[in-house]
């Protein structure tokens, strides 16, 4: 069962923004350069021992957000409070030497692509221990083997190259590398989406076990709502650079308040279960993220419930239930 969040958050990101200049500029350009608002004033917390899910379609900015939180790219604005420091003040290029580097790690979607094809599984797992913990020789080997064992990776496979490993084994190498330095926060970027169902369960169980054993918190990015619902305590729903709804995963998915969340939930087919009743469907593509109108809902134009007010006034925050927030003029306030 998901345990409730306790004490102070491990990660507290406030009003994080990422804007990229696009096109324009140049010698003869007039007026301001158009800006792509990849992430627009997002605030989120991850509590100790909590698993927070992050869902949204491709291009909604979840990749940019996770890379900022992992300190791989710089923020344009906002703060990232972690262990009492504002990490957003440290440039990403110099973050490699920061003491918090070992405490924030990441597991990638494409396990194969995230392991250097020239190096063995051992080298991959050893890299963070070498650089961040300064280990070498026998202590290094011991730590690598411990991480591999924790992740259920047979030690005989440590000498293999990524192309000699199965999908599940590569996923285990990626996880072993990420947990080797015993991070406080683990960002999981669609860790099971490339895996078969039978392997997926094993990896999800492994992640659950590692979380309690190593006392980590998870930020879990996924497009598979069934998986998010299964393992996340809380969920954040992103649309076009903004969070449109957040709250306890089960409550949000059982009775979504934001029409976008509703459309997401309605789009998911449930194995072995034919659902009755009308489904909310979305047409078209999202609006352009370049210089979006700050006085309009981002979902306006694609939203089946949208009205004129949605195009001229920024959506207000509503509270559909305990611990929940949604940003919508016309939320679905049904209670399950």
């Amino acid at each position: 069962m998901p345990q409730p969040a306790v004490s102070a958050p491990v990660l507290d990101a406030r009003d994080v923004c990422k804007r990229y200049p696009v096109g324009g500029g140049g010698l003869f350009a007039r007026g301001p350069v158009p800006l792509l608002h990849a992430v627009d004033r997002i605030s989120l917390t991850v509590g100790a021992g909590e698993t927070v899910g992050l869902v949204g379609e491709s291009g909604c900015g979840k990749t940019t957000l996770t890379r900022m939180l992992a300190r791989l790219i710089d923020t344009t604005e906002g703060s990232i409070l972690f262990g009492g420091d504002d990490l957003a003040t440290v440039p990403a290029a110099r973050f490699a030497g920061h003491p918090a580097r070992a405490a924030i790690q990441m597991v990638f979607q494409d396990a194969e692509g995230s392991i250097n094809p020239r190096f063995t599984a051992f080298d991959a797992i050893a890299a963070p221990l070498r650089r961040l913990n300064g280990l070498s020789g026998a202590p290094l080997r011991a730590r690598v083997e411990r991480a591999a064992e924790q992740c259920g990776l047979p030690l005989t496979l440590l000498g293999r190259y990524p192309h000699q490993l199965s999908g599940g084994q590569k996923a285990r190498v990626g996880i072993a590398r990420a947990v080797a330095t015993e991070p406080k926060l683990l960002i999981l970027d669609e860790p099971t989406s490339a895996l078969d169902v039978s392997v997926q369960v094993v990896i999800l169980e492994l992640l659950a076990e590692l979380k309690s054993r190593l006392g980590m918190s998870y930020l879990f990015v996924s497009h598979d709502l069934n998986v998010v619902r299964l393992i996340c305590d809380r969920v954040l729903v992103m649309y076009l650079g903004r969070i449109v709804e957040e709250g306890p995963a089960e409550a949000v998915f059982r009775a979504p308040a934001h029409p976008y969340t509703r459309a997401l939930v309605d789009s998911v087919a449930v194995p072995g279960q034919i659902r009755e009743g009308p489904r909310l469907r979305l047409s078209g593509d999202p609006k352009s993220p370049i210089d979006p109108d700050q006085n309009a809902c981002r979902f306006h134009g694609r939203c089946p419930r949208g009205q004129d007010v949605c195009g001229s006034v920024a959506p207000p925050e509503v509270t559909p239930g305990t611990g929940r927030r949604a940003f919508c003029h016309l939320p679905l306030m049904e209670h399950a």
């Binding site: 791989l72 290029a93 490699a96 250097n116 991959a124 650089r131």
Partner: peptide
Amino acid sequence: EAGYIEAARLAGASTLAVMLFEVLPN
């Protein structure tokens, strides 16, 4: 943009280290 470049930076590799020890061998 390869995944292992991001992974190396998470492992604390500086830009120079990423270039010499991750990109160059490939």
